[in-house]
Amino acid sequence: MEYQVIFIQSVLKDDIPKIKKSGINLETLYRSLKKLERNPYGSSRAKSGDLSNIRGMDWNKGYRVLFMVDDINKIVKIVSIDCHDEAYKKAKRRKQD
């Protein structure tokens, strides 16, 4: 385990409850997040434009886990988890903070 995965509050308050409500098994999400702990660059792609500094990982069908990587402090900050369009919309808004 090299990196620490952390969440912004909005992900915990909005995104994860929404996923829970849709009946998706959260264990698969957990496994994906553990992968990020080991190597955030392995199964993710860098975004550009408005979402530069954000990386995205596919999860479940059509879902995205969007996050920022701080290599100095070894932190992966999750900024949104949602279906494709919603995830990017939220990330754009939240990455300002």
Partner: peptide
Amino acid sequence: ESNKNDKDLVSLKDIEGEIFGISSNIY
């Protein structure tokens, strides 16, 4: 309000039991 609270960050370790129902020992 939610964005204001976003400055408070939460680690995966702290919530894996509560949210994911995972015991870190298993993993």
